[in-house]
Amino acid sequence: MPVRICCVFGTWQLLSLVASLRQSIADESSPPQQEHEDYLVLYETAGVSEHFKTDLAKLASTVWTWKRIIWAYDLLTSERKYGQLQIFRIHHQIRATIGLEVSSADEIWACFVNRPSEKILLDSYPRAKIVLYEDGLTSYLPFEVSTMARPPGTRLRKRITGAFIAGLSAISPALRLRKMADKIERRHLKRVRLFYSLLSEIPVPYALADVPRSQVGASLMRDLIDEVSRDALSGDNGDCRASTNPRILLLGQALSRNGIMSYAQEAAIYRHIAEQIVERGYDIVWKEHPRIRAPFFPELLDAVGNMTSDPSTRITEANLPHTYPIELIVSRMNIVCCVSGTSAALLYLKWLYGIKAYTFAETLIPLMTGADILMSDMVRTHAMPFSALQSSNGTQAGIC
């Protein structure tokens, strides 16, 4: 029975993985479908709460049949400065923790092949093929491919030195981990056999141009979401209350948690957006990002309270554990559109349910650099600017 190691670091990524696993079954028209033995590895490189870890493991146990669910938060990290003996010990520890020998894994399913955490796992099982599944907008960033060799055409000594370094790197994963930063190693890229994508309208990065791409069906993902919502939320009916005004879903992000800006800066942006939404005649349903450390809802409630005498009716929180993705209940929510900054959920809700998407990414750009600006550009291409949101006509929003 083929063995797959599946890597997950978030609740939405878990749904993306399982949808991709289901799509792989749907794609196998011939030969007949083959059973697999699946191991799930849970980790997160930027640090999450114990509550997040527990909720992720709990959700995982309901969505797929796993041979084992392994917590690897202390093993798969963003650390890259290891000695050679250290890295070999870590490889051994990973195999012992998962319970699979070096030649036992046939495939590794992951979102990335360029980060230290995934590279360590890939080098622990060097013979396994790699299948990529979508993380979100980060899956479409322009990854750089690197080798340890010097470019051709340089002086003889440099070429000899480059060849020596390339040869040394072949037997030294610790050296590769230090020197290649967040670039994709060609040895790993050659092992990638398929990429399962959700957002078909976004082109794959150049590094993956030669990797076959399989589109996960929207109906397949909706079916999965319906099943997970029914099984994992114990009949929770989402947020279907009637409201006097049309209701907008406002999604938070983890910008301060990720070091893009301070908590105060992020809170100020959300307060300003919430005030504008209320001024335009809408009620708000707020959803915290699954990975946040400090909630923003008290800030928003205070901001709306400065504008109206009934803030608890003008802004409410989504009836969902904040560690879970909003996609689990959004189809049962009574909303007219979704507003966020650079959240990929804007694109997913549009793809899955045709929900109108508005972005205030232009407000965030002055505080962003590098990859965050690129993701902002992606969102702005596929969502309307927040400034285009018209005022409500005040008609009652119907009951779900």
Rank of each mutant, 00 (worst) to 15 (best):
Y73A: 03
L75F: 11
S29Q: 15
A344I: 01
I335N: 11
H188M: 11
P325G: 06
R280Y: 06
M375W: 07
A294T: 11
L364V: 06
L364D: 10
L175P: 00
K119F: 00
F360C: 11
S78Y: 13
V285G: 09
L122R: 12
V63Y: 05
G398E: 15
M307F: 03
S124A: 15
G354R: 08
E317I: 05
L389K: 07
A209S: 15
T77C: 04
D239G: 09
L17H: 04
I171D: 07
T154W: 09
D377Q: 13
S200N: 13
P173N: 13
E101F: 12
T323H: 12
T359I: 03
Y43Q: 08
S20N: 07
D210R: 15
A110F: 06
A170E: 15
T154L: 15
C240A: 10
D27Q: 07
Q86D: 15
Q253H: 10
S309G: 15
N393A: 09
R80A: 13
N245W: 04
V102L: 13
E35V: 02
R80L: 05
I165R: 13
D372H: 06
E299R: 02
Q276M: 13
F88E: 09
V3K: 08
F297L: 01
K287R: 13
F88W: 12
L367W: 11
L249W: 00
L122S: 09
G235E: 08
S104I: 03
Y353D: 12
H289P: 01
S29L: 13
L389D: 01
L301T: 04
G217H: 10
L156P: 06
E185V: 01
Q253M: 06
D302S: 13
I171H: 11
L220D: 08
S49Q: 11
R155W: 10
P321T: 05
E28W: 05
Q215E: 14
T97W: 10
W66S: 09
I329Y: 01
L175R: 10
V41P: 05
L17D: 00
A267K: 06
A242N: 10
P325N: 10
L346H: 07
Y125N: 08
Q215M: 08
E37Q: 14
K119R: 14
C6S: 10
D239K: 02
L121N: 02
M384N: 14
P31I: 00
F360L: 09
G252M: 01
S262W: 05
P366M: 01
F386H: 07
Q265F: 00
Q33C: 11
K58V: 02
D372R: 04
